[in-house]
């Protein structure tokens, strides 16, 4: 465990927990894409298939449980909670899961470390995580004005991506045989998807104005 990895995990954890806590407190999920949240729940469910078979560390197991629990709780709130679901922008959040899930599944069947159910699901979860933010970014573009909640959420997710890349560079130089092409390439693609958002986020922060995305 290095400092970049820990910082990455913590910002990732904060992004999910901040979102869950705010939805729970203000009973609103306006601006949040249910499609993206469902894709993340699927990402965690397919990646952590090893949770009961391979023990890595107490930290690892607890974090996996928190990510699974919080991502499914968010989906539950947005679909089932009678106040929260009323604030959901259903008409604007039209991205189809299918268009992301199917290509990722096909890619995972072809590109994986080993052709076993667990390894294919692991590769699938990495490919899907890389593109799962797309429905959220489309929703941001459509609704234009972004409240603090959504801005902070995407900012924390972007910080998590950046820290993980530093973590991979660090591990590559400090650990023998640390090579994970699938993780790195999908992680890089995911980070690039945030670059555009970050450009506008920092500009609005620098100029101290409310964040607006161009059409």
């Amino acid at each position: 465990m290095n400092i970049f990895r820990l910082a990455g995990d913590m910002t990732h954890l904060m992004s999910v927990l901040v979102l869950l806590l705010k939805i729970h407190t203000i009973k609103s999920c306006a601006g949040i894409s249910l499609k993206t949240q469902e894709l993340y729940a699927l990402v965690f469910a397919t990646r952590y298939l090893d949770i009961f078979t391979d023990f890595i560390s107490v930290y690892n197991t607890i974090m996996k449980l928190i990510f699974l629990g919080s991502s499914f709780s968010i989906v539950w709130y947005m679909r089932r909670h009678k106040l929260v679901r009323r604030s959901y922008d259903k008409e604007q959040d039209t991205f189809r899961h299918f268009f992301l899930v199917l290509p990722c599944l096909l890619l995972a069947l072809v590109m994986n470390e080993k052709f076993t159910f667990k390894e294919v699901m692991w590769a699938f979860s990495l490919y899907l995580e890389a593109v799962a933010i797309l429905p959220q970014l489309v929703l941001l573009q459509r609704t234009k004005n972004i409240d603090n909640l959504t801005g902070q959420y995407v900012f924390l997710l972007g910080a998590y991506r950046a820290f993980y890349i530093f973590n991979w560079i660090y591990r590559y130089f400090t650990e023998p045989h640390y090579v994970h092409w699938i993780t790195w390439i999908s992680g890089l693609v995911q980070t690039l998807l945030y670059a555009d958002f970050f450009y506008y986020y920092f500009n609005s922060w620098k100029n101290n104005v409310k964040l607006h995305l161009p059409a």
Binding site: R5, D9, I56, N60, M63, K64, W122
Partner: peptide
């Protein structure tokens, strides 16, 4: 040189 132990990231 990849084994399951290397999949220690989240």
């Amino acid at each position: 040189p990849q084994n399951n132990h290397e999949k220690d990231e989240l």
